[in-house]
Design a binder for these strands. Structure first.
Lengths: 141, 141
DNA sequence: CTTGCTTTTGATAATCATTCTCATCTATAT
DNA sequence: ATATAGATGAGAATGATTATCAAAAGCAAG
């Protein structure tokens, strides 16, 4: 239950936090902007202040519940942290996001960082291209 | 000469554009924010409107003269396009940026995109870690 | 090398995403 | 039920970037 997750993260269990966390778990789209989360909640009748949405997202991120991504479009998107690490591929036409994991790339990154004298702590890999899904080719995807 | 580059890019040769392009070519730091470019020019006695800096950078990017990067800090940095493609590794302590190119990673990316049904057009790979340079370990790097 | 027309520039207003402020409200321990 | 630290919401503030518009500069023609 979401209450547990919040408690474990050292956060008080409040209505706004529960609503936001639940949305992140239930929404069909895994990668959302703060604005989108705010809007989806409002459309569902749950009006939560935008500032509260930003605050909760920052706290969830600090607690490791979610991850923040900066794609090249400049938008900041949040994603519920579940399952193992993965990278992203974004469709430049319809914006759809897919995930992937590649062991070889992960290993090479560590080698490269080491060879440059860095202690690797994180990385961001995003591929951009055109997904050729029917929806995308049609118009809006 | 820079005038040529501007003309080839289909841009009129103007003083502000020349100054900005020259700075990008001469500066010791290859990755700069618009604000930094503005400040460096001002310090060098070349006061150019900040709006003009942004405009010129956008035009240079459209012309393929420079590239824009979004690192996870959220800041937008511009880099003169010279030499072949490369990716970046950023020190999370001092902000230093190094470049690298890895053929194996490049190839895997193409394979991954294809396997997911995408036509790859671009990618952004940035590693984050601590560079262990003396300057960085000291204090400011 | 002046004229005229188009583009560019600079100062500043506007916009957008995000964070801050602060008075009010709520979760939770007692 | 009560006290209190922490959370919320509305809107102001901030920072980065873009838009507006009058004045200035580039460039082609005479």
């Amino acid at each position: 239950m979401e209450s547990e997750e919040l408690r474990n993260a050292g956060l008080k269990v409040t209505t706004p936090r529960l609503k936001i966390l639940t949305l992140l778990e239930k929404a069909s789209e895994r990668h959302m902007t703060a604005e989108t989360i705010y809007r989806l909640l409002a459309e569902g009748g749950e009006v939560i202040g935008l500032a509260t949405v930003y605050r909760a997202l920052a706290q969830f991120e600090a607690a490791g519940l979610i991850t923040r991504h900066h794609f090249d479009s400049g938008q900041t998107v949040y994603e519920l942290e579940r399952g193992p690490h993965h990278d992203h591929i974004v469709c430049i036409r319809c914006g759809r996001v897919e995930e992937f994991y590649d062991k070889m790339i992960e290993e090479r990154q560590r080698e490269i960082a080491a060879s440059l004298g860095f202690t690797l702590s994180d990385h961001a890999l995003t591929l951009y291209g055109e997904c050729n899904s029917p929806d995308c080719l049609a118009g809006k995807g």
